[in-house]
Amino acid sequence: MNSPQRWSTRTLNEGEWQRFDFAELSLVILNAWEEWRIAQLPEQYHDLQPFGTLEHLPAGLDWERWDNDPKDSKLMLRPTYPTLPVVAKPLSVLNISPRGVANFYIGIPAWIEVMAECQGSMIALKAYPAEPLSKTWHGTSLVGSVAYALKTHARRTFVAEHWPKHDIVCSISLSNKGAEILPFDRLYLETDHLSVFESGGRLWSNAARIASGESGAQLSDIIYAAKPAKPNSEAVELTPARKGYVRSSSMKTAFSSLLGQFTTYDD
């Protein structure tokens, strides 16, 4: 299934089901008995055909159910961000020289949100991680927030073959305006304010820009652009930001290596 088809609206009539695969996630969605049913496909059924009717469906799937109307048949999947903020840590620390600017890319594994027609309108039923991420703690043992941990290569160039298709690629421009070397060892991304875009069959986030280390200056912010960086600035928005777009996010929580250990957390 190519990318535009993957995210487009489709019809699933009464008694029909369809299978969807994203990285480690296999979903079966069924429209039957005035219900939408979703199950994650266990390992032993991975040779199941892509779609079918009730008689082709294996028994014993662990269903989650949503009531619908007999006329409801529209279904749509869309990529979204993980439900918690993401702490991206490069596999190797990238040191940015004084007055230097580093551009790099990180890929956030998408969650797949199932939207279906219920009583005539499309509603989000549930989101599933295409690739499960482990949790991490951002803050001290007294205050902080739980986040998903993301280990990233922090690649300097974007080569499509290097990236899984379910990754939302975020381009980051980090400029060190200080007089000392700035180690990039982690980045805290509040994903609630980011949108998912599509361009060239790939998922993109808003471009991010960070300026830090300027002597005498206050801590800067992460500045989020309204669109992905060039050459993908004409990308189409697939999923709007959960809590709306904001231009900046406080550096205090975003870029811990500038602060050493956290002493405060403002949310």
Binding site: V87, S134, K135, W137, H138, S141, A149
Partner: peptide, 11 residues
């Protein structure tokens, strides 16, 4: 610990 989805990476 790494593979348990409820365990934190950090600490």
């Amino acid at each position: 610990a790494d593979q348990n989805k409820h365990c934190l990476d950090e600490p």
